[in-house]
Amino acid sequence: MSADTPVDAVELTSTSGASAFSPDNPAPVIEPPRARTKRTPRATRTNFELYGWLFMRLSGIVLVVLVLGHLLIQLVLDGGVSKIGFAFVAGRWANPFWQLWDLTMLWLAMLHGANGLRTVINDYAERDATRSWLKALLYTATAFTVLLGTLVIFTFDPNIQ
């Protein structure tokens, strides 16, 4: 390599003004969001994450049938959305098969979606407090929707005024 190669270094961004930093007073290092320490992660010794992972895949397989079937019946066959009305729903829920279909779909989709969002919250919430609040909100909304949906499927009254 020849020593007289023309080289020029171009400073793209200059660093922050009058330097308050020195070898004795260095700037804080650039930290990633949260650092792993000797004490983290806490051991829980349960199979919760294993079951959660399996549930996502198993419920996913069942949801392919339930959700695609649901969309087909509701939106495509027999005139599409225009047919949907009180009478259409009442007619379907008169049959225990469709009651069971909708019940399974409700529970699986809600638990699947909630567990998926739990993962997302775990990943992206940076402060512990934010994380707890988001999860509390998620679990409340999930429980409310699942319970209300279940109640409606079982207590639906086609003759309601």
């Binding site: 190669t5 961004t13 330097s19 020195s22 700037a27 804080p28 650039i30």
Partner: peptide
């Protein structure tokens, strides 16, 4: 990035043969 100079990281170009 040099914490003894600045708390900012920056891109610096070097042209080399």
């Amino acid at each position: 990035y040099n914490p003894e100079v600045s708390d900012q990281a920056s891109w610096v170009d070097y042209k080399l043969e």
